[in-house]
């Protein structure tokens, strides 16, 4: 495998973890987050500091999971206070705040970021394998959750909190759970990203990146694990395969986001389902 292929596959794995974890929050539980990049970044910085300080891979992973989910729970409390579209606004704010804050912090490297992060020692192929294993585990967890009673309750909370409450479902607890799990995984993705690049700057975690992740979720079909995985892989490869997409990345992602919401709100999953139904009927 060439170095290029290894790096593409690693990035795909990281993006799959990010998109699938965002789908847990926004797809399963209906809590729209446009700041997933902030949790990704928080995990990356936590892992970078841990690696610089101790060089321990397991410690870095734990630090990233913890930092991601703590920040996520804090934002989760916001979801208890505001209606869905304002939650989306709040999460945008959290993303900007995260970037604005990190930029001014000398101990986080400020504008320059953190470089010279010690290697994991697994080599590029080892890192890639680790990333793929974590991505597979994330997909498995997501599939499990959607079948479990937690996934069942998430759907209820996402559709109508008041009605969920009349069935004895404590919406607040479930929203916090969704944020806690989803953002811990985003933190994990950040950690893997740090292992992969060994150099981070805050620009990688900005709002635009969060919009790209949301585009993956919406285009894949909000709520569908496999749809989101397909979209995450496809949208990561697209700019690599097509020069035009690479140059005009935001144009294409923004355009796809608008088109899919406008013309096929169910995303790829919805289209496949409809095609399947049509075939069965004919």
């Amino acid at each position: 495998m060439s170095a290029y292929e290894i790096s593409i596959i690693s990035i795909i794995g990281i993006n799959v973890i990010l998109a699938v974890s965002l789908n847990m929050i926004s797809g399963f539980c209906g809590q729209i987050s446009l700041g997933h990049g902030a949790f990704f970044g928080a995990g990356a910085y936590a892992a970078a500091l841990t690696m610089v300080g101790s060089g321990s891979v397991p410690l870095a992973i734990m630090a990233a999971l913890l930092t991601g989910s703590l920040l996520g729970l804090a934002v989760g409390f916001a979801s208890l206070r505001v209606r869905t579209d304002f939650l989306a606004v709040t999460t945008i704010g959290v993303n900007f705040l995260f970037v604005g804050f990190v930029r001014k912090q000398a101990w986080l490297g400020g504008e320059m970021g953190i470089s010279g992060i010690p290697a994991t020692g697994f080599g590029p192929v080892g890192n890639m394998t680790m990333i793929l294993l974590f991505a597979a585990a994330t997909i498995a967890l997501s599939l499990y959750i959607s079948r479990s009673w937690m996934g069942f309750a998430f759907r209820a909370v996402g559709e109508d909190e008041g009605a969920a409450a009349t069935l004895g479902i404590n919406s607040g607890a479930y929203k916090l759970a969704a944020f806690g799990i989803g953002t811990a995984l985003a933190g994990l993705a950040g950690c893997l990203y740090t292992f992969f690049t060994q150099f981070i700057t805050v620009d990688a975690f900005d709002f635009i990146f969060s919009v790209m992740l949301m585009a993956m979720v919406v285009i894949g079909g909000i709520g569908s694990t496999w749809g989101v995985v397909v979209a995450a892989v496809g949208l990561t490869l697209l700019p690599e395969a097509i020069r035009f997409v690479n140059d005009y990345r935001l144009l294409v992602f923004g355009g796809l986001l608008v088109l899919v919401i406008r013309l096929a709100p169910g995303g790829l999953t919805g289209m496949v389902q409809r095609a399947f139904l049509a075939v069965r009927r004919s």
Binding site: L34, T84, D85, D247, R249, G255, L256, V258, I261, P265
Partner: peptide, 23 residues
Amino acid sequence: YRPDVPMIASVGLLVLMQDAFRI
């Protein structure tokens, strides 16, 4: 749809336009 659906579409449009201006 729920109010967050047009809002996400709106974000998409903004990102698209911003890139269009750049291009």
